[in-house]
Design a binder for these strands. Structure first.
Lengths: 231, 231
DNA sequence: CGAACCCTTGAGCGAGTTCAACGTGAGTGG
DNA sequence: CCACTCACGTTGAACTCGCTCAAGGGTTCG
């Protein structure tokens, strides 16, 4: 799979949206299109990070495995998100595809050179990383204080915003959860059973509708968002 | 308080440790030494960030106030840490001194110019921010999964590493907690009472010794670290 | 000395876990 | 086509950890 990724800058508006043509061309020179199947690992904790990438399609998870052996998901990556740790010696978390994903992959050394040569790219990456840091810190709040209902509601709300962004206002957002119940439980720090119960609770409260195992239709988005922050 | 901060680069090894003399001189030109009393606010959520700074002495907290009105501490800043959001429009969290602190403050515009002119500084800031992001994600794990005992043990362990780094091996690290019980509770997502009980529990288990209200002597650091990750 | 603040300690309660059983759908081989 | 299996999800019952409410100490400041 060595096809050049010529549209990496076009698709990844979050990182490359404000780059000029020369910069986009430089990125296209570097990028290689790659597809990963569900469950494939892009980076493994402990390894030196060999690549950086832009996620174009699908969802990936960032996870650690504790000494006790249980996995914990510490974050999710959606289309447009940047993956990798340029200038870092080693990474301490795994990055794994939870759905089939499409990536624009850059060899790390070349990507670092590109950052050095194109100051704006480095600037954008810095801004984005600072934003991700703030987001992570705010997520911590949810993890620390929120009830199980709020966590699950917040998760569904988040996914809804990211998975069905093009949904026109008024229509009920419908989408598939990219994660299994067990993965949701890991992410939210709950048990599978509690996630299941809370999903049911959100359904009986009329906020969502469950379609099959993973399908969700948001019936009352404002109420869902309110529960996510309130309870 | 407009004294030039001439040693900002010397003290803040984490950010400036690998800068050359010209870069350090450039920073010294910009920096202004400033002292904040306990409780003073450096940045307020919603405001545009007017300054960036390096924390030299003391401890600050990053916190948000939810709609419900209760404060949540999302992170702590220690000497050597960078404060601020260069290139950001507005910040969404408060930064407040929890002890008396000493800062090397840079006007934001000037600091941004310095980053632009000295690529290595921007590089270092990016690396540090990526590291902070990883740290925040791993902290989330603690918030999500860990028991009250593990949270408190982890907190004490963390503080011990940061507050008494020069402690020679073999000696029991002794230090004062920079936060009140209430602040610890906010940070860990617990109640004051639970924090108090867990501190006592760590003491009766022989891992720590409490000296007055805030003093702590770590008697069994390995056990403490083990509890932080295990339970 | 009283007041305010912070910390500690106790008793009861509730949310979420644990343990266990059952349901359901997809894939497999007879 | 049906039985079998296996992974995933749901549901129920008992238990536990941490919260809530309440009272009691210690210190500092007027």
């Amino acid at each position: 799979m060595t096809r050049r990724c010529e549209d990496c800058g076009v698709r990844d508006r979050a990182l490359c949206g404000s780059l000029d043509d020369a910069e986009l061309a430089a990125l296209a020179q570097l990028g290689v299109q790659r597809t990963l199947a569900r469950g494939d690992t892009l980076m493994r904790a402990g390894d030196p990070p060999l690549v950086c990438a832009n996620l174009q399609r699908g969802v990936m998870k960032i996870s650690t495995t504790t000494a006790a052996g249980d996995e914990t998901i510490t974050g999710l990556l959606y289309p447009g998100d940047f993956v990798g740790r340029p200038f870092a010696g080693a990474i301490d978390q795994d990055v794994v595809a939870v759905t089939e994903v499409e990536l624009c992959v850059f060899p790390r050394a070349a990507f670092e050179r590109a950052l050095t040569n194109h100051g704006r790219m480095e600037r954008l990456l810095l801004q984005r990383t600072l934003a991700a840091l703030d987001h992570a810190r705010l997520t911590m709040v949810r993890m620390a204080h929120a009830s199980a209902t709020a966590r699950v509601a917040g998760f569904v709300d988040d996914i809804g915003r990211r998975q069905a962004p093009g949904c026109r206002p008024g229509a009920a957002p419908a989408f598939d959860l990219p994660l299994s119940r067990g993965e949701i439980a890991e992410l939210l720090g709950l048990t599978i059973e509690t996630v299941s119960r809370q999903m049911k609770h959100l359904e009986t409260a009329g906020m969502i509708e469950r379609v099959g195992r993973r399908g969700v239709v948001v019936r009352n988005a404002p109420a869902l968002a309110a529960v996510a922050t309130t309870a």
